[in-house]
Design a protein around this nucleic acid. Sequence first.
DNA 1: TATGAATGAGATTTCATTCAT
DNA 2: AATGAATGAAATCTCATTCAT
Lengths: 208, 208, 208, 208
Amino acid sequence: MPKDTFFNLSIEKRQRIIDMAIDEFAKYSYDKVSISKIVDKAEIAKGSFYQYFEDKKDLYKYLLLNVIVEKKVNYLSHFTLKMQEESFFEVLKALYIAGINFAKDNPKLAEISDHFTKNTDDNLKKEIYDGSIPKSNALLEGLLLKGIAKGDLNPDIDIKLTAYILTSLTISIGEYFIKELKVEDDMEIMTLIDNMLLIFEKGIKNKG
Amino acid sequence: MPKDTFFNLSIEKRQRIIDMAIDEFAKYSYDKVSISKIVDKAEIAKGSFYQYFEDKKDLYKYLLLNVIVEKKVNYLSHFTLKMQEESFFEVLKALYIAGINFAKDNPKLAEISDHFTKNTDDNLKKEIYDGSIPKSNALLEGLLLKGIAKGDLNPDIDIKLTAYILTSLTISIGEYFIKELKVEDDMEIMTLIDNMLLIFEKGIKNKG
Amino acid sequence: MPKDTFFNLSIEKRQRIIDMAIDEFAKYSYDKVSISKIVDKAEIAKGSFYQYFEDKKDLYKYLLLNVIVEKKVNYLSHFTLKMQEESFFEVLKALYIAGINFAKDNPKLAEISDHFTKNTDDNLKKEIYDGSIPKSNALLEGLLLKGIAKGDLNPDIDIKLTAYILTSLTISIGEYFIKELKVEDDMEIMTLIDNMLLIFEKGIKNKG
Amino acid sequence: MPKDTFFNLSIEKRQRIIDMAIDEFAKYSYDKVSISKIVDKAEIAKGSFYQYFEDKKDLYKYLLLNVIVEKKVNYLSHFTLKMQEESFFEVLKALYIAGINFAKDNPKLAEISDHFTKNTDDNLKKEIYDGSIPKSNALLEGLLLKGIAKGDLNPDIDIKLTAYILTSLTISIGEYFIKELKVEDDMEIMTLIDNMLLIFEKGIKNKG
DNA sequence: TATGAATGAGATTTCATTCAT
DNA sequence: AATGAATGAAATCTCATTCAT
């Protein structure tokens, strides 16, 4: 967590620092991000940075666990709404839509998340997430179980594996979206997600 | 490509260098791999390294595009055999089996591939692969087209997206294999792949 | 010397600052003492510190030359009393007892003195004491001269050297006391001092 | 220990580096010594330093435990010779003479030793000496025991305390020598030591 | 008088690459 | 062809002190 000094700064300055940090962490992976570059671009003294943040990791954690999460919350409102009532595939769709809309509106933040997911330093990962990745699979496993209970899904599927596949698709669908399509049109996103989910739907839904 | 000097070395020395490089690139991501460590472990002078290779990238490229690819070829023989005659799903299965067997028999090389796939420096990626990832998708897109032509697949599927999904699954299935299962038994691997493909099969095969 | 602003503070605040400063200077040597830590622990603003003291050195000087000296005065009352009448060795003994009792009752202050004595930055030393160490020797040289005059001491001894030795012993006896003995019992301290002085007594007293 | 690369350097270069390091460590305490300054004065690249030494501590250890010790050995030859046969006071005298002559001929090295002895960071001290300071007292305690056995010394003296005193005097006599006398004349040194030892001799020798 | 954000020089350390021998 | 010493830019981080409010 940033120090109090950081939160006592003017909003403009705080935002400038965060923005420049986002710029760099979106462009480079953790190791390659340079604090010197960030302070240069944010036009603050190097010493000031260390008055605001414990160290590089502190800033990184803050971006990942606060700035990004905060932004993401809005996008997940539909998902959480649907979560209660709808069929498994509707909920899953809401989840993907949330993810993609977030990436569309906040490409840099999505890029940072992407860098983090792909980061290979497991120690750093563990220290920052401390179990949140398994949690992400737990979320999907829970959804799958509910889906089976509701009768939406074929009870014979391998839950763990299916969850793994769905998680991995979150990433690939995001990449596909970023690299192949540069869609402005929301309809296309919907179509994309529909197509992807259709494949699964047939594969894992209950025939009954 | 390594310089001629490298290929003029005795096989033993060449192998020693390659082995130590594989060790390091399997352990660390590109940035964190230390040339100093490699030359130490291979017991060659640092200057010599730069007489064999242009630079760090040169070695990395060589490992990825030559050493690894060369090893992989054997594993793909079944796949290429089946490619001619069998149904789409048989071919796909052969492709996955090849990939998993390769990872099982050459864990370090698989690790290097993994590191590369997850590497976040797009410039490096582009410079090394320079279109090979699209090519990898092109392979799958080709398979899909053939599958449609043969009547195996539903002609309405989004080919590009489906190819993307299948590629992404290569990665996730590999990870799942490495982290969740520590299978000695080939049967389990087969079951794993069967389960995964079943989901797709239902999703994309031709109902007719 | 601290600025007037410091002395205008409430006694409580002043004491809090001094106490925290003592804590830090007892724990660390001059260079390693952190003003930031002191102001944090004393709960004053960093800017305030520089309105009370010129700089770090100013605080340090104040502790050494005022706070500590002030405390020491009581302990030297016996010494000064005896100074008039008693034999050289009685006076010397009183001096050592004063020193050790001071260290026993004010371990942090003693630690600060210790750090200072051992500090290696001669410039700082000179600037702070500015002749006080020679003065400390002058005290002993005076005692020795008096002792000779009284007939207590052998007039042939090298006064300067003997004074130097006695000064150095103040330090070593203090360390020995702190590190080897953890005496609660005053008797043991007396015995320790007696033993040490006995060695000298035989060495420098007048045989006549 | 310095790395091999250091010992492979030309004698001139090696000496230049050592000399500049000695200069700095004689002037400043460990913490204040700047590697940057040393490399500047030795006219080597900063990176080179780290090819020769692990880090700052490595260089410091090398100076203390190798460079200085090596130089000191010669000075102790008389001492070790006398150690076998002579009376306690002769041996002690030889020890002091060795110490003082060393300091006279190698004032900077003596200064470094002095800085180290007075250094307050016990962790560093422990790491470097790892028990050598108690050993120094053990040496004197051994001498004292031998002296008692031979009948040179009063068996009633407190051995530990006496050893402590003698150790402390090694330091103070060195300082006295450096600061008060700037003797060229060896005779004066002898007189100085004789005077000091006389005091002790009377104090602790066997009356019988 | 009180505050605490701002400063910036300077510290140690790393490492791919070059180059003289 | 082989060697390994030399390089130096760039990295993170520290901290006493200043200064605007």
